[in-house]
Design a protein around this nucleic acid. Structure first.
Length: 230
DNA sequence: GCGACAG
DNA sequence: ATCTTGTCGC
């Protein structure tokens, strides 16, 4: 798929924050995705700091909706330069994902990202940043919380959800995708509403805690064999 | 100054 | 994130 980086990725933390403030204004929270046929999950497996020789690996797995059968998988060894800094994750992972995204033959109708959407200090988490950059509907589904607070206790039954609030606004939801298992943190990334983001993640998390596209991308990035791509 | 902190 | 198989618990 075509990818147009509107700026350099060789930035200082301070410059990255500036970019986020600018791009955050482009995020849309309106559901305008047309008929959804293909959904892609992306993930990056960082190289071990104990083995700098081993490269990091970026992966994208596209599945057909609603069967959730893989139709395409792209995995590449990549080099990561930007360090992990809470709040600036996208500047570390997006450069690694670009070459993988460019090799995709399918244009996803929806992107599921392993990270936050607008549940971010400047409302531009990895999912929102990717969504705006690619102009594709995107949803952030993180395994842990970056910002925001929950009112009370989240029920422990699959489907339980509770607003994640920050600065007086709802930036997403804590969502229990599996009974008795830690919740995930769902927030819209781009061109998706808060409610739809939750509905999509529930519909996609049919087997594991994480949505199938994300789970498959994670496996692929980890170098494990995944279900045959048809 | 102190605590929090996606992957 | 990463080091890693079996094992304890509901």
């Amino acid at each position: 798929m075509k990818v147009v980086a509107g700026h350099s990725w060789d930035l200082s933390p301070g410059e990255a924050v500036r970019v986020q403030r600018t791009l955050a204004a482009r995020v849309t929270l309106t559901d305008d995705a047309g008929p959804v046929r293909y959904i892609s999950g992306v993930d990056v497996a960082a190289g071990s700091r104990f083995r700098p020789d081993r490269p990091a690996r970026a992966a994208v797995v596209t599945v057909r909706w609603p069967e959730l059968t893989p139709v395409e998988q792209v995995v590449m060894n990549v080099e990561i330069r930007f360090p992990y800094i809470p709040g600036l994750l996208s500047f570390r992972e997006i450069p690694a994902l670009l070459p993988v995204l460019e090799r995709m033959r399918y244009r996803p109708d929806l992107l599921i990202v392993d990270g936050q959407g607008i549940a971010h200090p400047r409302r531009l988490g990895l999912a929102a940043h990717l969504g705006v950059l690619l102009d594709v509907p995107a949803i952030g589904c993180a395994k842990s919380r970056l910002i925001g607070t929950l009112q009370g206790d989240l029920g422990d039954v699959r489907g339980a959800a509770m607003p994640l609030q920050d600065g007086g606004e709802c930036v997403g939801y804590a969502l229990r995708t599996r009974t008795g298992v830690r919740p995930v943190y769902v927030s819209p990334g781009h061109r998706v509403s808060r409610e739809s983001a939750v509905t999509w993640v529930m519909s996609l998390a049919v087997r594991y805690r994480l949505p199938q596209p994300t789970h498959l991308a994670h496996q692929a990035a980890a170098g494990r064999h995944v279900a045959p791509v048809t």
